[in-house]
């Protein structure tokens, strides 16, 4: 018995939405900076999935969504590099990557 899934645009959109929500939830609850950065990658790439899906279903002749997703990847990497950089310098001061310890500024 085999069920043939007819995968369409909505499946991609729901997938992207689920990944986006997971990433957002992770950013809200995660205590570790590395986990935070990974979750940030999640939400950026969820948007990338949306773009690719729309490019192949809605905007077939131009494919500007594909270009967009390429740009998203590039900038996501740049931001991740910056994040790791800051993580290292914070680690130097605090000897920890715990978000709860980042409490020098309040108010």
């Amino acid at each position: 018995m085999s069920v043939v899934f007819n995968i369409g645009l909505y499946h991609y959109l729901i997938l992207a939405l689920v990944i986006f929500c997971i990433g957002l939830w992770g950013i809200v609850v995660c205590k570790n900076i590395i986990k935070l950065l990974v979750c940030a990658e999640f939400i950026l790439n969820a948007a990338g999935i949306n773009f690719v899906a729309f490019a192949s279903y809605v905007d077939v002749e131009n494919l500007s969504g594909l270009v967009f997703s390429l740009f998203i990847t590039i900038f996501a990497i740049a931001e991740l590099v910056l994040g790791v950089l800051l993580l290292i310098s914070i680690y130097k001061y605090k000897r920890s990557a715990d978000v709860e310890k980042l409490t020098d500024m309040k108010g």
Partner: peptide, 8 residues
């Protein structure tokens, strides 16, 4: 990411 999601 929110921006991109909206734009998408």
């Amino acid at each position: 990411a929110v921006f991109l999601f909206g734009v998408s």
